[in-house]
Simulated scan of single mutants.
Amino acid sequence: MDSMVVKVVQPQGILDGIKSNQLRQEVGDILANGANTVLIDLENVNFMDSSGLSALVSALKMVRTAGGKLYLCSINEQLQMVFELTRMDRVFETFANQDDFYLSHK
């Protein structure tokens, strides 16, 4: 890959309305600073509501609009269930963890 600039976002705790806005803002800032690849590591997110899912979709749209790519990693069982029920598991490219992501993008 040529000049892939990866920035990792690591939300914590519950990904709800307030944290969702912070996530959108953080992804926007990352894109404004020239990164073209965003990896959202969900390892420390133990619950996500619909606004959290909406924030991830918004982030994906922002990144794609900027010509970049967005990936997710470290999705726990609760989040995986949400992704499968909403069929978002077909929309997002996911990895087991950060190491898995970096190994596949060498």
Rank of each mutant, 00 (worst) to 15 (best):
Y71T: 01
I75K: 00
N21W: 03
K19I: 06
V8F: 04
S3A: 15
L31N: 13
N44H: 12
K106I: 05
V57Y: 01
Q78D: 05
E43A: 09
F101S: 01
V91G: 15
V38T: 04
V6E: 08
Q12L: 14
L56W: 00
S50Y: 04
G34D: 10
S74F: 12
L103K: 15
R64M: 06
G28Y: 13
S51Y: 13
L39C: 02
A32D: 03
S20A: 13
D16P: 00
N76F: 05
G52E: 06
V57D: 13
Q22I: 00
S20V: 00
L42T: 08
L56S: 10
M1I: 02
T65N: 09
D49M: 14
N36F: 00
M62K: 09
A35R: 03
G34K: 11
Q10G: 13
M62V: 09
S74W: 12
V5T: 04
L23V: 10
L39V: 10
G13M: 12
D100R: 12
F101T: 02
T86Q: 01
E93P: 03
D2N: 10
E43I: 09
M88D: 04
E84L: 07
M81G: 08
P11V: 11
K61E: 11
G28V: 01
L103S: 13
C73N: 14
T94Y: 09
Q12Y: 07
Q10V: 07
Q22P: 06
L72M: 07
Q12H: 12
L56C: 04
Q12G: 15
L39A: 15
V82T: 06
Q10F: 10
K19Q: 07
G28F: 08
G34C: 14
A55R: 11
R64K: 15
T37N: 11
H105D: 06
N33K: 02
D49Q: 10
E43C: 11
Y102L: 08
L42G: 06
K19H: 11
L79H: 04
I75M: 12
V63G: 07
Q98D: 12
M81D: 09
L15M: 10
G28K: 12
S51T: 07
G17K: 01
Q78M: 02
P11T: 07
T37P: 02
I75E: 01
G67E: 09
Q98G: 05
Q12V: 11
L70N: 10
F83I: 09
T94W: 04
I18F: 15
L15H: 11
E77T: 03
S104G: 09
V63F: 11
K7T: 03
G52N: 11
M62W: 04
G52P: 00
N21S: 11
D29H: 02
S3E: 13
R90S: 14
L15K: 14
N97R: 02
M81I: 04
R87M: 11
N76K: 09
E26W: 00
D29E: 05
E93L: 09
Y102T: 14
N44M: 07
T94A: 15
